[in-house]
Nucleic acid binder design. Structure first.
Lengths: 198, 198, 198, 198
DNA sequence: TATGAATGAGCTTTCATTCAT
DNA sequence: TATGAATGAAAGCTCATTCAT
């Protein structure tokens, strides 16, 4: 029998490898932030070397960008799925509006690691020279605009309402994390939405 | 004639020095976070050396703790001042409640650097091994409890409302920073409070 | 219809490839030296990968050796061509001697990149553990010996004169490069040769 | 008796330390060049750590600059000493001219490590982005100008002669190093100077 | 013929900290 | 009160090289 020499790595497909790295990156960046996490730590957790990691992403910043793009693609898909039932009948009803927001928060509540990552990066990326500065700026603008369209017709000041929704969502999620998910995020959310959207 | 010796430092009192350091620390930690900012950077900005800085605070963590304590003392004083007019007649009226929240947000709006610092640290301190973990956990609990007492009697579910206020405040402030203070934070705040507190 | 497969590389012959690599290597090693240039840089400039490059030469050192051998062959041919007219009538005349030296310098003046490469490597290869140490040692010895034979009969101390010629040639070429080829190398050379060879 | 704890470093004066570092730097940079030598190697040889070394010079480039400045100061002093006897009677005589050049080469012959360093750096610094590019460009210009002034009145074309001297000096010194100092550099130099300066 | 994955060693530089002065 | 010297550890990144494909 041929003695298997120390095969450096079990040979994963490129896609599997990247998914693996992303999964760990979400955890570590979510905990320490982009600036403070270390590539070596991440590499170790993924079972490859520092240089091996950089082989995929070129640089620390490259990794972050790739991660955000990947997540963005998935988020877009998810939001689209949530809104799909209502796209035919624009403008959507007040009920559909509530349902959509409910769905978004419910989905987030299912992946607290992602909430943590975004909470961390959102704060870090307030600094204009942060590599994710643009990303979160655009994202916030787009999100508020989406909410504005959704609530238009159901509230007196759609822009304000959209801002409120965005602020509440982020604020609640952070609170939820700090309290170790010990209250029912979705229930609390539904409550406040009832107030916000008349 | 006595030759003036090279007094490098313009002779500051210990207190003035600390205040100076805190002022810079608020900026730099607000931008980079506690984990990613560097003592050398801060020292340079304060016009003293690495070792000189540590002379005052002992360690990086010591500096953070000192800063948070200092700010906390000031915050407590400010909140007390805000609530003072109403402490005699507990429970406070709905109007007093709104006025107090208004005052808090108005005060914050006057010091965006502090908002930034807290937004950054609040996110970083979600990690249990962060030196400010306890601080922000307790702070959030205390804040929500304070709000709960304030709104009790004016809303059906005081705890939920308190959570909403806390979440909204943080969420709005972050949004305000990301949009370069380009909307009227206080006005938006008053609007939403009207909805939240019936 | 047969779908044209993605032929990445425009299909070069092995020889063309090597010539291509050598051409770039002359530039990059001439600029940075053997020790400081990087295979990856060279590979990128040649339009292939790191591993692709090594496929041809086995190692960094192998590349240098191959380059030097290749150039040496060409140099030898060139010098031979220069001396050919005189080989029948040994010893060559004083006039032929001057003409030969003129031809050598004139040829070099036509390829400043090669001058730069040799100037760089000659300096680096002063260290005994440099892979080109032997090469340049032997080369210098051979060159001085060649010059000695050429000038024998025309000067009182042929070995000294040979050394002078070798030193002058290298020194002048370096000077010429540093001054961005802004003086007439060949003219200056002819002048000094007249002095050196009576 | 108090057991001496591991005193990190025997506490040298700043000047002694720098001199020590320069001495080693001359050797290591002379052997490997600026680009290829490593700060860690140098630090180890000087008996301190990587970070300790950088404490003095800030960066690798800073070290090179400091070294060149230091040497330049010493060289200037040495050349001034050599020329001093003649400065009163300008223009200097042909004999004084020869004597000066002799003195310069003789001095160099006494410190082959310096010759090696300069030979190495002169080649490396042909690249415009080398940190010593300017230094060696200016130095060569100044040297040639000095020689020109010295030989003016004794040769038909002073600039050409100055160039020849500069080229010969560098060329001879390199040759001398490559042949392990096995011929009499100063004697050969005097011989050729006799030819160059009629 | 050439690539992509991966590594181990090494690079310069920065970090928080200690300590004698 | 504050500095300068020095450190050990770690940072992000590059290096030449190996190997399976």
């Amino acid at each position: 029998m041929k003695p298997s020499l120390p095969t450096r790595q079990p040979r994963m497909t490129k896609e599997a490898r990247r998914a693996d790295i992303f999964a760990e990156a979400i955890l570590i960046i979510g905990e320490l932030g982009y600036r403070a996490f270390s590539l070596s730590d991440l590499a170790r957790r993924c079972g490859l070397t520092n240089a091996g990691l950089l082989h995929y992403f070129g640089s620390k910043e490259g990794l972050l960008i790739a991660l955000l793009q990947e997540r963005d693609r998935q988020d877009e898909r998810a939001v689209a799925a949530v809104l799909e039932p209502y796209i035919s009948s624009e403008p959507i009803t007040r009920e559909a509006c509530r349902a959509s927001l409910h769905a978004i928060v419910a989905r987030n509540a299912g992946q607290p690691d992602m909430i943590r990552l975004y909470a961390m990066l959102r704060a870090e990326a307030l600094a204009p020279d942060h590599p994710a500065y643009r990303f979160f700026r655009n994202r916030e603008t787009a999100t508020i605009e989406l909410f504005r369209q959704m609530v238009t017709g159901h509230v007196p000041d759609p822009l304000s309402t959209a801002r409120q929704i965005e602020a509440l969502m982020n604020g609640f999620e952070a609170q939820w994390l700090r309290q170790d998910c010990r209250f029912d995020l979705v229930a609390e959310w539904d409550k406040v939405v009832t107030l916000i959207i008349a």
